[in-house]
């Protein structure tokens, strides 16, 4: 089966620093791939190439087998790629509806902003994610971490994302809210959406992901099915760059 996304041999340097050095990843429909590594291992940078926030120096991206030209977040969205960023990337002083429709505002027949339609759609999509949510009129700055996360996720799923990138989706959340996000990931996966899950919480990733890819120093240590390796082996990949027998080694694997 053709993968939903293939990123091959991606290189990206900032000044002299090779943030991503020849990394390759793939993702299938209805699959969750966890991207693991220390801070500064290059996982966020690599994924930002896919979301259009950074442009790779070289390398290839294919979506459903077709070469994809992603030069901006706008381009990425055209391929059905939506990103939920680590810093949430919400506009703090705007309300939930304005944030969900940021950059894709609904218009009336007159060409003016359709605030009513946007609010109605917001109520609907937020109702699916977080039925207790009521604070539609308030700036998102006033919301809790979990509520803000729901807004960020609502923004992605409302526009029928096929490929979802979640960058540390639970970093700012408490345990109950983290479970909620976990449920949501399973729900989205069941709908055939492919998800890249970036995290340094190995337990989270083992709970939710089908496969993991591990990065270290900008290079890919290896990729493995979660079923084929243990958490300790995964930790060995992250910390030492040591690739266990159950994993497919990448260019960053220690010999």
């Amino acid at each position: 089966m053709t993968p939903l996304v293939e990123m091959s041999d991606i290189h990206l340097a900032f000044g002299g620093i090779k943030a991503v050095d020849g990394a390759s990843l793939d993702l299938h429909e209805g699959e969750v791939v966890g991207l693991l590594g220390h801070n500064g291992a290059g996982k966020s940078t690599l994924i930002k190439v896919l979301s259009g926030a950074y442009r790779a120096d070289s390398g290839d991206i294919r979506v459903r087998g077709e070469p994809a030209h992603i030069h901006s977040p706008r381009d990425a969205r055209r391929y059905g790629i939506e990103t939920i960023y680590q810093t949430l990337a919400l506009a703090d002083n705007l309300d939930a509806a304005a944030n969900i429709f940021l950059g894709r505002e609904l218009l009336t027949a007159w060409g003016t902003l359709d605030d009513a339609a946007m609010e109605a759609a917001t109520r609907q999509v937020m109702g699916r994610l977080n039925p207790h949510f009521r604070r539609f009129k308030e700036p998102v700055r006033a919301l809790s971490g979990g509520q803000r996360q729901s807004v960020a996720i609502a923004r992605a799923i409302h526009f029928d994302a096929r490929i979802l990138i979640m960058d540390e989706p639970t970093a700012a959340l408490g345990p109950a809210e983290t479970r909620q996000v976990g449920e949501l990931v399973k729900q989205l996966k069941a709908q055939g959406i492919g998800i890249f899950l970036i995290s340094h919480d190995i337990h989270d990733v083992f709970d939710l992901a089908d496969r993991i890819s591990v990065m270290k120093n900008g290079r890919l240590v290896g990729t493995a099915r979660v079923a084929d390796i243990t958490k300790d082996e995964a930790l060995g990949m992250i910390i030492l760059g040591k690739c266990p027998p159950g994993a497919i080694p990448g260019p960053g694997a220690m010999n």
């Binding site: 990337a89 919400l90 703090d92 304005a98 940021l102 950059g103 894709r104 060409g111 003016t112 902003l113």
Partner: peptide, 24 residues
């Protein structure tokens, strides 16, 4: 207040990075 362009102007001022990542 009432156009998409205006919403993008406001978003740019309120949250430059968030707006950029949202494709504005």
């Amino acid at each position: 207040k009432w156009t998409r362009l205006g919403a993008h102007l406001v978003a740019t001022g309120e949250a430059d990075e968030a707006a950029r990542l949202a494709g504005i």
